[in-house]
Amino acid sequence: MIGNVKTRMALLDTASQQVPVSITDGIEPERNCYVVSMRTAYSGYALEELKRLHRPLLTWPLKVLAKGADRLFQAAKIDKLVLINNWLLSTNLYSPGWDNTDLGALTDMLRREFPDHGIGFRSLNDFSNQGLRERLGGLGFLSIPSRQIYLFDGQAGPQSPFTRHHSTRIDASLLRRSPYTVVTGAELNAAEFERIEHLYNLLYLKKYSSLNPQYSAHWMECGQRDGWLELRALRNVQGRIDGVVGWFTNSVIVSAPVVGYDTSLPQKIGLYRQLTQLSLQEAAKRQQVLNFSAGAADFKRVRGGQPRIEYSLIYVDHLPWGRRFVWKLLSMLLHRIGVPLMRKLKL
């Protein structure tokens, strides 16, 4: 279903809700996807981005540093990890129901069940999850910054601030005049799901990184069928699908784990702009917040995206001293160096 994810899955029943849990033992194949692997998230991505620069004289010291960090992460078994509420998406969402969860009792139970694993929560930010992040911090969870994401607050509906940005208005006009027809996932056939997988791969795997989740057509079809993934596709006048966006939502947040388009077509067509506009309109229609993940920072900023640092919260107090030290060192370095760089460079 997801080609580069190797993990075991379980279901956690908190009494107020049921959520998926991923369990990795640190013995999975190298470069397991970052949705389950902290090693990939923090050293694998760095090594791949350095390769993309194609400037060996400039990047070799950084490459040596990244490889050293990778060996340290491997020795510290940071991929021996249990991740709660892990949907294997780029962004996990937390419903208001988490406020009713006894996190202390949950942490104690997980420590007993997994005495040799770190215990974590991905995808927390202080706009949507400040209370949850503070409660986890109070229980001893380490804060590990991961990336800078962009949020579009649509709670004011059609009057939401991002709707008044010049670039957003131009994109809205582009979508209105577009020769493409917007179709729902329910209207797609099997061949079109294969096309959507190809479009996602063109953008996320070939243009961005092979370490992104490798979602299959079958995974997308099951998500649409079972109701947790809502697809919208752009069909041209000849009947071919040239763009797709897929939303994963709860009662307060819209996210877009699936975006893809035909990157061989002229940029002036504005396929990515149209898909973004569809997502912004959906957030305003629902009066919710669009979490539009990371990447394309300048593009998102000029359309009203508000930057927020995203964190993972990891509990390691029950682990051996050496493994705890590596986690704490990673947390300190990312807070002191990583976060200021993300903000300064507007990543």
Rank of each mutant, 00 (worst) to 15 (best):
N32R: 05
F299E: 11
S210K: 13
E282S: 03
Y42N: 07
L62Q: 14
R169I: 10
E30F: 08
F141P: 06
S16G: 07
F141V: 04
V64I: 15
R195T: 09
L83H: 01
S167H: 15
L290F: 15
H335D: 13
M9W: 05
L65E: 09
G260D: 05
A46P: 00
R324P: 04
S264R: 11
I2Y: 01
R133D: 01
A76T: 05
K300G: 03
R301Q: 14
I170N: 12
R164T: 12
G305T: 06
G304A: 06
G68I: 04
Q281T: 05
L12P: 06
K80F: 00
T168A: 13
L83R: 06
I78K: 09
N212G: 07
L229P: 07
Y204V: 01
S251L: 05
W321N: 10
V316C: 04
A76P: 03
S146K: 06
I144M: 12
K206Q: 14
L151P: 09
V21N: 02
R122V: 00
F292Y: 15
F162I: 10
L174R: 15
L103S: 01
L330N: 04
F127G: 02
A15V: 09
R122W: 06
G227E: 10
V316R: 01
K63D: 08
L211M: 11
H54S: 13
D70N: 15
N212L: 04
S22V: 09
L142A: 14
K268P: 00
V182S: 09
Y315D: 02
R225P: 01
L139R: 07
N125G: 08
R135G: 03
S37N: 05
T276R: 03
A284M: 10
G131A: 15
N4Y: 05
E187Q: 14
T249A: 11
M342T: 00
E194D: 13
S331Y: 10
Q159D: 15
L12S: 02
R55G: 02
I144K: 10
A105W: 00
L334P: 06
A10E: 13
Y180W: 13
T40P: 03
I84K: 03
L151H: 13
S90P: 13
I144W: 07
E28K: 10
R232C: 07
E194W: 00
R303C: 09
V183Y: 01
L50S: 08
F121H: 09
N85A: 08
E30I: 05
D298R: 15
T14D: 04
V326H: 08
Q159N: 12
N236A: 05
Q306L: 12
N189S: 02
A191L: 04
H335C: 12
E192M: 00
R343L: 15
E28F: 08
L290I: 11
L89S: 08
P56A: 08
K268W: 04
I23R: 01
M342K: 00
A191F: 00
V289C: 09
N250A: 02
